[in-house]
Every structure is written in C-alpha cells, then in structure tokens.
C-alpha cells in the first residue's frame, strides 16, 4: 500500500524537489529579501507602537501580540500568494507548456507541486533568518519587548503546525488560480496587479483583520484569504484557541479544498482551449 502510494507520488515529489533545490541557490535574493523584511517590520512595529501609545484600549490584541504578528508576517512573507509563479508565465510564452502536456501526470498536481516548491524554497531561508534576528538576537540585545515571541503555550504550538501546513497549501491553491489566469491570458502583469493588493489586505498581512470596522468583520473572517495570515497567526499567540482555533483550521481546510477544486476546473477548461503558437 505504502509502496503503491509512493509510486504514485514519485513524479510530484520529484517536481517539487527539483524546483525547491533550484530556488535555494538564490542566496543573494534571500539576503536581500530578509533585509527588506527587517526594514518594513521595524516600520510597521513603530506604527503599531504609536497607535498603542494613543489608544491602547481600542486595540483588539496586546502590543506584544501585535509585534509578534508583524515579525511572523515578515518571516513568512514569501509564503503569501501575491505574485503568480514566474515559471508558468515563462512556460506559456516559450511554449514549454506543450512539454508539460506531454508528461503522464495530472496537470494540476504537476504545477501545484512545482509552485509549492518555489514558494517554500523562497520562504524557508528568509523565515529562518527572521526567526534568528527577531526571535533570538532582539531579546539578547535588550529589545525583548519588540521581539518575536514563541507560541503562547504548548497547545498553541501544536495547533500552529496544522495551521502552518494549511496556510501553505491554501497559498499554493490561490497561486494556482493566478497561474491559470496567467496561462490563459499570456500575461502575468495584470494578474499580479489585481492579486497583490487583494492578498495584502484580505489576508490580514497589512493589518490584523480585527482592526477593521465591526461591520466588515463578519465577512473578513470567513473569506478565503483570512486563512493565509490572520487565522494561523492568531492561533500562534492563542488569540484563537480551543473551539475557535479548530474552527479556524476548518475554515482554512475548507477554502483550500474549494480553491483546489476551482483550480482544477479552470485548468481543465484552459487546457481545452490551449493553442500553441507557431505552425
């Protein structure tokens, strides 16, 4: 049974691994990304500090949690699906998509595995650097109030594991929809121009969703992008716990399945219409 499933998964694991290894080579990009994310993290924390200084009572979470929220967001920024996978755009322009169609694989699964490899290879080195800087170096130099804190308790840590897996799977599912639109329209700029602001606002990346006006919140908390940042991070510092945390995980899982289902349908349609360029 295990041998059979490994046999089935072998191509997808290979596609993931190849992309992951290739992307890990880009050390300069990882360092540059890390530097940028430190800078923006510091600015966002200053903004939060100013806000809490004026009106701490109005805030839905404590300043310490807000600081952790920011650093966590900066650490995992590259996991967020705000630009389509550039390899797909390139494959469409160069006709490499044709070769993708020649592989005896589920077309959606093949692209999903590659996109996942791309996301994780970009995210993990930066996340490691950021954990080191914001979680260990800051407390050591006496800036513990402004540091990334560990998960609030064993339960939060345990729940954060599936939350992290689901935020990654959901992010890849969102990216796949973007990839498919890129492939169908032969153009990635338009897709990214729409996707980036949507993800930044609705995921809670810009601001935790509880900071938005009351009237919007019922909607904000059930839409798919909440599972990318807001839900997993609040599970991390136990702002969502017990039943609420499980609900959050269920929402992440449900949206992941829905978006994968939609992506599969869209891909099927797109591939039927696919026309390769040239005689």
């Amino acid at each position: 049974m295990q041998a059979a499933s490994l046999h089935w998964a072998r191509p997808y694991l290979a596609a993931f691994r190849a992309r992951f290894q290739l992307m890990l080579q880009y050390r300069a990009a990882a360092l540059a990304g890390f530097a940028t994310q430190c800078w923006w993290g510091a600015i966002r924390i200053l903004v939060f500090a100013a806000f809490y200084g004026v009106n701490a009572a109005a805030a839905p979470i404590s300043l310490a949690d807000a600081v952790t929220y920011v650093w966590l967001g900066q650490a995992l920024l590259a996991l967020q699906p705000w630009v389509a996978d550039p390899e797909i755009g390139q494959a469409v322009r160069t006709g490499g998509v044709g070769y993708d169609r020649l592989r005896p694989l589920d077309a959606y699964g093949y692209w999903y595995a590659r996109t996942l490899g791309w996301m994780l290879a970009r995210a993990l080195p930066r996340a490691a650097l950021m954990l080191l800087a914001a979680g260990i170096v800051l407390p050591l130099v006496g800036l513990g109030d402004w540091a990334l804190r560990p998960p609030s308790g064993v339960m939060a840590a345990l729940l954060f594991v599936p939350a992290f897996v689901l935020m990654t799977a959901l992010g890849a599912a969102v990216l796949m929809l973007a990839n498919i639109v890129v492939a169908a329209s032969l153009n990635e700029r338009g897709v990214n121009a729409v996707l980036t602001p949507l993800v930044i606002v609705f995921s809670g990346s810009l601001l935790p969703l509880d900071f938005y006006p009351d009237a919007l919140r019922p909607f904000l908390h059930v839409q798919p992008f909440a599972g990318l940042v807001d839900i997993p991070f609040r599970i991390y510092f136990a702002n969502l716990k017990g039943g609420a945390a499980l609900q959050g995980l269920a929402l992440q899982a449900a949206w992941t399945l829905v978006l994968i289902g939609l992506g599969r349908l869209a891909m099927e349609r797109m591939m039927r219409r696919l026309e390769m360029q040239g005689g």
């Binding site: 490499g96 169609r101 020649l102 592989r103």
Partner: peptide, 16 residues
C-alpha cells in the same frame, strides 16, 4: 495521460 506515457516527442525549437 495513458497516451503520453507511450510516446516520445522532440520539438526542434524547444527544450524539455
């Protein structure tokens, strides 16, 4: 999927 497992293709202008 079953079909492409049995064939080989080379496009002179593209690389696989």
């Amino acid at each position: 999927v079953r079909h492409v497992a049995r064939i080989g293709v080379v496009f002179g202008q593209r690389s696989q």
